[in-house]
Amino acid sequence: MDLAVAAGETLAIVGESGCGKTMTALALMRLLPEGAEVAAGTVRLDGQDILALPERAVEDLRGSRIAMVFQEPMTALNPVMTVGAQIAEAVARHRGLGGRPAWAEAVEALRLVRMPDPAARARAYPHELSGGMRQRAVIAMALVNRPRVILADEPTTALDVTIQAQILALIGTLQAELGSAVVLITHDLGVVAETADRVIVMYAGRKVEEAAVTGLFDAPLHPYTQGLMAAVPRGRGGARLADIPGTVPPLSALPPGCAFAPRCPLAGPRCRTLRPPLTEPRPGHRVACWERGA
C-alpha cells in the first residue's frame, strides 16, 4: 500500500467494509490497535518518517500536524467531558495555552465548523448534542490546531443524508481555508465523486487502482472498480442493481494470486497463481490487474 497526498489535495480511499481502509489510516497515525503492527514501510510527513520516531515524538505530531476525524461521533467523544473541554485539551497540549485562551480557541473552532451557538455548545456534554453536532465537534477537535494532514474516516456514515452533504461541504470549505491535505476514507462512491481530487480503490488490504477522480469515473479499469460503480443506484428505477458475487476474503486467508480473482468475471489462470503488479496503462491512472494493466 502506498499513497501520497499533497497540501490542499483531497485523496479518497474507497473499498468495501473490512478491506483495510481504517487500518491504513490508523497506521498513518501510528494508532493501530494492539496485535496489529506495520510490518514494513515508511510514513513521511514533510519528509519526516513517522514510523521511525519515538512514541513521544509521534504524540507531538498527533493532533497538531496530522489529525483524524473518526467514524462514529457517538462513541468517539468522551461522555463525561464537555466537548469544549475535549477540544481545549488538544489546544493546551500542542500550543501550551492555559485554560482560558485554550477554551476561547475551542469555541472558535466550533464556530469554524458552523456549530450553532458555539459558546453555549462548548459547555454541553456529548449526549446533549445531535449526531450532526457531535460530528462537527469531532471535526473541530481535529482542525483546531490547523493540521497539515486530515484523515477523515467515514466522517458521514453515521449521519442523515442531509447532514452528510453539509458535513462534506464543510470539510471541503475548511480544507480550502486551512490548505490542509485531506485523506477521505469512504465506501460511498457518491461522496468520492463530489469531494475527491484523486481516488485509491482498495481491495483486501491492497491498492488495486489509483486515478484522478474524473479518469476513474469516466473509464474505470479494474473489474472490482467497475463492479462497485455498477452497484451504485442511478435512480432510473426498475432494473435490479448489479452486485459483486461473493465476499472479501479474510486478510488471513488470501488466495495466492490476485485477491479479487475468485469474484472476478475476467479471471484467467494467471490471475489465480500470480499477484498482478501495479502498472500505469494511462498517464496518472494505475491499476493492478493482469487483464487491464499495461
Binding site: D60, S64, L77, N78, A90, M141
Partner: peptide, 10 residues
C-alpha cells in the same frame, strides 16, 4: 474515545 484522546496527541 480513548483512541480519540490518543489521536489528539495526549
Amino acid at each position: 474515545f480513548v483512541r480519540t484522546a490518543r489521536a489528539k496527541g495526549l
